[in-house]
Amino acid sequence: MLTVKNLTHWYGQADKPLYEDVDLSFDTGQVYTIVGASGSGKTTLLSFLAGLDKPQKGDIFLDGKNLKKIGATNYRKHKVAIVFQQYNLLGYMSALDNILTALSVTGSAHKGERQYVLDTLKRVGINEDDAKKNAQKLSGGQQQRVAIVRALLVDANIVIADEPTGNLDGENAAMIINLFQELAHDHQKSVIIVTHDPHVADQGDVKISLENREFVVA
């Protein structure tokens, strides 16, 4: 379980915090969607949860252990997987190599991984030929599916996604949301999605709204 305690953050002036004393918790096997207006601090919260940044005050715990103790690099390497709006695949590699790189970096590589990756990509609609193509030659929907497979296979318990359907059409967006639900429900991961799309937000198991510097759990 990922827990946020007394999280306070501000940019510039401490007396004008983005949010103050926030307490949140994220269980495994659930899809959490965080919605809010632009500039409300959704992505900032996500960067704390992903270990990409540190809040001004407060702590984040993973299974009772402070993130500061775990170490940000170690946390990103073994505990969390991030899916970005821009897919963020390495442009000089194929889709397959992108996933193999992630497995190598996170230490999730195992025997027969190549075939396992190809099989997993096939399950999300990317055949072997496409998997071996340069990642940038795939469509936006395909790239996002590759990014999700990457998040799935790296053995991280927490998957954090920042506007994962922002650049996708309705059909592709629906497919991606299904994949996230599969990650949470079938693979028992904790999926946290930041979105401004109300339709995507409604598809989560728990919806958290950020309104007037307050997180409201629906």
Partner: peptide, 13 residues
Amino acid sequence: QKEIGVLVSLGES
């Protein structure tokens, strides 16, 4: 920078 960012987000040192 994007490539480096991706690697950093994956936990690469």
